[in-house]
Amino acid sequence: MVQTEAYVILSMVLFAIGTLGVLLRRNAIIVFMSVELMLNAANLALVAFSRQWQGVDGQLFTFFVMTVAAAEVAVGLALIVAIFRTKQSINIDELHTMEG
């Protein structure tokens, strides 16, 4: 039986990778994938703690996260398609018209 700590560490690593991906990558698709990675890191941690405590709350919550993530993907990809159509690029550094 794998230790819960291992899941948590893996979750932290995945989360860090996702965070760095969001912060460092410029391709919107990659950023999007990194966000998914962070969500799934969180899911992993939830599931791991759920097993640790023998409760179903964490697993239930995970389903919600996956559902929201699915919805988010639908909206997010649509936005990205719209951005691409106007800018012919999905480099998020070119999207700074909201600058103060």
Binding site: I92, E99, G100
Partner: peptide
């Protein structure tokens, strides 16, 4: 206003 860069990354 310089803080308001418009770059999503900075907000993140």
């Amino acid at each position: 206003r310089r803080a308001q860069t418009g770059y999503v990354r900075v907000y993140a």
